[in-house]
Amino acid sequence: MLFYSFFKSLVGKDVVVELKNDLSIHGTLHSVDQFLNIKLTDISVTDPDRYPHMLSVKNCFIRGSVVRYIQLPADECDTQLLQDTARKEASQNKKK
């Protein structure tokens, strides 16, 4: 649930989502759910000449299972906090 909470804290920020079919989409993070499905608004494809398939699409829903990478705004992320929290969660899971 850590990354779900993490992505929820990034709602409203601009991200680039790279899919497992090599398509990269830039947009504003609108929402995320427990499967890390992502909804983006005001999207643009980073290579529109190669991918003109989304010319009439401004908002989209991406299935979490096809996401390869999400590029985040570096200044909006506290990586130290994320690492500490990830370790804390991992050690809690070990105890269970």
Partner: peptide, 11 residues
């Protein structure tokens, strides 16, 4: 993989 909302006017 992806569901996009189509703007019919643009389309």
């Amino acid at each position: 993989a992806l569901v996009g909302e189509v703007d019919e006017e643009v389309d």
